[in-house]
């Protein structure tokens, strides 16, 4: 069900390095993401996956290197240019990050109100539709603290999709979800990609999900502080020359048929 991204190259990460103060987390990252990819940023805990995501969406400047969206530099430009580019992004944060002083409908309506000329009634209709897409019909007037963690996550997705973004970024989409909800979310992600041609970039180490829907990936390593491999996660699992990558993707237990090869 997960065909490789067929479109042209959309996102290029070039020589990117990230650090907190003097402490380097990752260096020399180079990879490409194609339109329609479901791109997975993976690696062990604390390897800098989330930090990489923050640099891709403009929350943290890289210490070195840059990322290009459709050929345009993201970090060289002015803040205003960057803000314009950000309008094509949708971001789902780990715990949803819904604005707690607003109802779900208002959460989804905020970007629409800021960046479109839609009237209140239309905004309300869009919010209801987006909530229905993630299975939250009827929850328009609930506040985030009145719904469960999984629902917050889905509402966060509805908000991320509010502006019909070109690229959707996910930070640990299946964390904190039960297996069934996690699978439903996977299916929803594929559906979004197929119907809206949305490019998906997600940080996760949920193997089931990576194998089921990932079409391309980059593997970050904590020890060497750089990327070990990039490519389709299923191919990496079976054919990656680097044993560390295979071990990770097999949960540490490689089948004998492969290790012997």
């Amino acid at each position: 069900m997960a065909a490789a991204g067929t479109g042209q190259v959309q996102i290029v990460v070039q020589n990117m390095s990230m650090a907190y103060g003097d402490f380097v987390i990752q260096k020399d990252l180079n990879f490409e993401i194609r339109r329609g990819d479901i791109f997975v940023i993976m690696g062990g805990s604390g390897c800098g996956k989330s930090t990489l995501l923050r640099q891709l969406i403009g929350l943290k400047p890289p210490v070195q290197g840059d990322v290009f969206y459709d050929g345009a530099s993201f970090w060289q430009g002015s803040d205003a240019d960057r803000d314009l580019m950000k309008r094509h992004f949708g971001v789902l944060f780990q715990a949803g990050a819904l604005w707690s002083s607003m109802t779900l409908a208002e959460n989804i309506g905020l970007p629409l109100r800021q960046y479109t000329r839609l009237g209140e009634a239309e905004i309300r209709a869009v919010a209801a539709y987006k909530l229905a897409l993630v299975g939250l019909s009827g929850f328009e007037d609930y506040y985030p603290d009145e719904i469960s963690g999984g629902m917050k996550k889905r509402a966060g997705l509805a908000r991320a999709m509010a502006m019909d973004p070109d690229i959707l970024f996910f930070d640990e989409p299946s964390a904190g979800l039960d297996p069934l909800s996690a699978r439903l979310l996977d299916e929803l992600i594929v559906e979004l990609r197929d119907t809206l041609q949305t490019t998906i970039v997600m940080v996760t180490h949920e193997l089931a999900s990576i194998m089921a829907i990932g079409t391309n990936s980059v593997f970050l390593d904590t020890e060497t502080k750089t990327q070990l491999a990039t490519g389709n996660p299923r191919e990496l699992r079976d054919h990656c020359p680097d044993q560390r990558v295979r071990e990770f993707l097999w949960r540490g237990v490689e089948p004998a048929s492969l290790t012997g090869a």
Partner: peptide, 9 residues
């Protein structure tokens, strides 16, 4: 929530 705002520009 602050990050979510910044991500939105």
């Amino acid at each position: 929530e602050t990050d979510a705002l910044r991500a939105l520009g």
